[in-house]
Design a protein around this nucleic acid. Structure first.
Lengths: 210, 210
DNA sequence: ACTTTGAGTGTACGCACGTTCACTCAAGTT
DNA sequence: AACTTGAGTGAACGTGCGTACACTCAAAGT
């Protein structure tokens, strides 16, 4: 990449190339899975020479970790925005199902990456994703604990419900990822399934405690 | 492998080598994931020369499919045996949790393979696993439908509960797989979690239908 | 006793890979 | 205007890969 845009402060350009690498890796990972793509493929797709890759990441593993970070920061932003919506208090379940499907649709590639590499990736990437998911369970527990009905539960119980929610989120995200594009019927089905499952968890939990 | 055992009818020997290849692939897949191991690695580990591999499988993909088949036939055998145990009728939930943990512990490698390649594998392997899991949902639905309490439910409802059970089974299998060896405390925790989750599903479902 | 069959061997090939190294040349600094 | 910095280049290396091909040599078939 001798040139790339006329707007080019040095660090701007570096950031742009970095993003190009991330985007290239994410796209390639879609079809073959991140674990099986090569440094040279990524470089080629990003329009740089293999050795230039090292100016941005020490190894493919570090690229993977950067993608994990990017994926979860996207997710966190969406959750934070959704929390501002007052309907969350009325009906957390429907809101969560909507957010889930919307979020996954909007950044399918990131979710696909996380879903795949969570179990299929390298040791380092797998650990990073598991750590982020654990964090996410705790964060969601905090949100849930503030909800009517739930605010009286013990924090252990809230934690477990949160874990079940996240587990279900992962499962449903996998389904949305595998879903062919432009099939609103399937999408509605998955949303509906997610809603039912979450309701199930809440109801089952409530009744079983009594 | 010029020789391997003195008992050697030709097809016996071929079968033995085939098993050696399958075992080698399964073991290697444990650490790195099946998708990233090479034909040559498998051959080396199985004690044959790379070209001999082709006498048994046309490609690594076909080897993967064979492993899928092997994994699920192991699982099916265990389920079939467990069904003969009368306690299944009294308490399908505890029985299922026991079977799950026992089965996964006993053939950890196969479960690890399935859990990983279900999302991380090649297109062909992924599809094969998904297909087997779909089959399994239907088979389990048949078993469930015969159970007291459940026998009055609609078949759609039974199918959905079955799907949730299987989804949970996959999640818990993943956990057992990641579990370090010789930690009966963790094992009991996972079993307990699985039991609670299944109870949750059943209770939630029953109460919500009413 | 002979021929046929086919699992396993050994060599050799072209290819993509990760990484090294010395380089260019524009942006940023003095 | 001269100097420094560092993102991107391009050639070269050693390695492991999948696969082709000609082979050996016992078991199985006649």
């Amino acid at each position: 990449m001798t040139e790339s845009a006329q707007t080019a402060s040095r660090q701007e350009q570096k950031g742009r190339t970095r993003q190009a690498i991330l985007a290239a890796a994410l796209e390639l990972a879609q079809t073959q899975g991140f674990a099986q793509i090569s440094l040279r493929q990524v470089a080629r797709h990003a329009g740089i020479v293999p050795t230039a890759f090292y100016r941005h990441f020490d190894s493919m593993d570090e690229l993977g970790l950067a993608l994990v970070e990017q994926s979860f920061s996207t997710l966190r932003r969406m959750i934070r925005e959704a929390q501002r919506d007052p309907k969350v208090f009325d009906n957390i379940i429907d809101a969560a199902a909507d957010v889930l499907v919307e979020a996954v649709k909007q950044s399918k590639a990131h979710f696909a990456f996380v879903a795949r590499e969570r179990v299929g990736g390298s040791e380092a990437v797998r650990r990073a994703i598991q750590h982020e998911l654990d964090l996410f369970v705790s964060e969601l527990a905090v949100v849930l604990a503030r909800l009517p009905n739930i605010e009286t539960w013990s924090s252990d119980d809230v934690q477990m419900v949160s874990r079940l929610f996240v587990r279900n989120m992962v499962s449903n995200a996998e389904e949305v990822v595998e879903m062919p594009d432009h099939r609103p019927d399937l999408e509605e089905r998955i949303k509906d399934g997610a809603r039912r499952q979450m309701r199930l968890i809440v109801i089952g939990f409530r009744d079983w405690k009594s």
